[in-house]
Amino acid sequence: MSEPLILDGAATAKAIRAEVAARATKLKEAHGITPGLAAVLAGDNPASVTYVSMKRKACAKAGITSFEHVFGADATQEEVLACIHQLNADPNVHGILVQHPMPKGLDEDEILATVDPAKDVDGIGRASLGDLVLGHPSFVSCTPQGMMTLLKRYGIDPAGKHAVVIGRSVILGKPMAIALLNANATVTICHSKTQNLAELTRQADILVAAVGRPELITGEMLKPGAVVLDAGYNRVEGRGHDVGDCHFESCAAVASAITPVPGGVGPMTIATLLEQTVAAAERSVGK
């Protein structure tokens, strides 16, 4: 086969961030509003701390005000809920990101459900997920929405295609499967209890790997010409860079299009968070 199309998430995310910055400037000039994104972080999970730091820098470049509310691992449910209620009522905050996982002892589901759906720019509250199932979501979980945007910008239409999603987490696998279904794909969901995984992956016109197992998917498990979206991001000792859930070289030899790791799905997550924050700010003025 010829070389696959590389779905360049880094370049696409850069274009989206520029669009977001232009929209933020327009909001400020027309309505005197600066979009605001608040992050709520409890504990000291290294990945969470890193993500919030990346988000802060991205906000600054996009003309979005970043607010951060940091709690220790001993934070109480009442303290975090009080913070969420305060942010719901703050007109300067248009988006709320509850960084997960939260420490043991906190009811993450209740905290997420307390976020005003109009400000749930991370798209993982009960109301947001319910609206996604109903087919008219305000905000979709950022990584799945980033992948859907990547498909759209590269002219890949899921309609009529067989999509196989590996992974069923509430922030990635499940919303991605529903988003593809809403885009008129036929969807199969695979997970840790799935038998004969390779038989199912070989049927996929679009394969989404979102299970967190390094290089689980190899080229021999793909249908020739498949589109591969690799949402994995795994640190492997002795490797010079993080690797995805797909073995890139063997999959690229079979696929028609594929996301690299790094530089594929990852950059789209924060770009989508920024985009949905600006969209929330625009809706606040009836735009």
Score class of each variant (00 low, 15 high):
residue 5 L to E: 14
residue 10 A to L: 11
residue 13 A to T: 05
residue 13 A to Q: 06
residue 17 R to F: 04
residue 22 A to Y: 07
residue 23 R to L: 01
residue 26 K to H: 05
residue 26 K to G: 02
residue 30 A to G: 01
residue 36 G to A: 04
residue 43 G to E: 06
residue 43 G to Q: 03
residue 44 D to Y: 07
residue 47 A to Y: 05
residue 52 V to F: 09
residue 53 S to M: 07
residue 56 R to G: 03
residue 58 A to Q: 12
residue 66 S to Y: 11
residue 70 V to M: 03
residue 75 A to Y: 12
residue 78 E to G: 05
residue 84 I to D: 03
residue 85 H to R: 15
residue 89 A to N: 10
residue 92 N to Q: 14
residue 93 V to R: 00
residue 93 V to N: 02
residue 95 G to A: 08
residue 107 D to R: 08
residue 107 D to I: 07
residue 109 D to V: 14
residue 111 I to K: 10
residue 112 L to G: 13
residue 120 D to E: 08
residue 123 G to L: 08
residue 125 G to E: 07
residue 128 S to N: 14
residue 132 L to K: 07
residue 137 P to R: 00
residue 137 P to Q: 03
residue 137 P to H: 03
residue 146 G to A: 14
residue 157 D to T: 14
residue 163 A to V: 01
residue 166 I to F: 00
residue 168 R to H: 10
residue 170 V to G: 00
residue 173 G to R: 02
residue 177 A to R: 05
residue 180 L to I: 12
residue 188 T to C: 05
residue 195 Q to V: 00
residue 202 R to G: 02
residue 207 L to Y: 00
residue 209 A to S: 10
residue 211 V to A: 04
residue 213 R to W: 07
residue 219 G to A: 06
residue 219 G to F: 09
residue 222 L to C: 01
residue 226 A to L: 06
residue 230 D to F: 02
residue 235 R to M: 12
residue 236 V to W: 08
residue 244 G to H: 11
residue 248 F to Y: 15
residue 250 S to T: 15
residue 253 A to C: 07
residue 253 A to V: 03
residue 253 A to F: 05
residue 254 V to W: 09
residue 257 A to E: 15
residue 268 M to A: 10
residue 269 T to A: 12
residue 271 A to D: 07
residue 279 A to D: 13
